[in-house]
Write a protein that binds this DNA or RNA. Structure first.
Lengths: 94, 94
DNA sequence: CTGTTATTTAGAAATTTATCTAAATACTCT
DNA sequence: AGAGTATTTAGATAAATTTCTAAATAACAG
């Protein structure tokens, strides 16, 4: 279930920071890695988890790979949280 | 930062199921444990993580401990996701 | 106080996760 | 084709997580 993957992906602070970095637009793997005190391999690992969770999409341009947010999955998570909060099945406020 | 704890707490399927069980009202540790094929000790461990994340509150009644949802923390998470989705640079700091 | 029930804590084992280094792949440019 | 850069993959390791059993606490009833 991709849903569980999404929560798992969000559970790591590095991955959350990556997502926040992508709010304003796509960045290449290298640009992302440059912001962290970790090897590129480690960032690649985190990106693979975000990708598997469908929280990011990749686009290849020249010999760069750009990563961008996929907000539709974020919406799904918000829906789940909404349900949790709702308790009574009446409401569905956004 | 309790915020990180919250995401971590949400990353486990058992804990998410516990939260869903609490939507319609509080349940005792034993009532919760009865729904899972795990020992009470394990459920107690999960409850302690949810409690540390402030996703649940406990109330002692007789020799039972009741657990109930704390929805305000859920709102905080939704706010974070909102920010992510929004991409608005006007309010990036929390 | 004694005994019973509900729950948590402690300690240990199995699994998963995050990280590194080194090597491999992929793509570009001349 | 060959060199150079960007990124990923493989393999290893340390740390964190989940789970269990057994023991400890806490609260109640008689």
């Amino acid at each position: 279930m991709a849903f569980a993957d999404t929560f798992k992906a969000l559970s790591d602070p590095v991955r959350r920071e990556i997502l926040m970095m992508l709010r304003h637009g796509s960045l290449s793997a290298g640009e992302i890695a440059a912001q962290f005190d970790m090897t590129g391999a480690t960032i690649s690992y985190h990106l693979s988890i975000l990708k598997k969770a469908e929280l990011v999409r990749e686009t290849r341009v020249k010999n760069y790979i750009y990563y961008g947010l996929n907000t539709s999955v974020v919406e799904e998570i918000m829906l789940w949280l909404s349900e949790l909060k709702g308790g009574n099945e009446d409401d569905k406020e956004v």
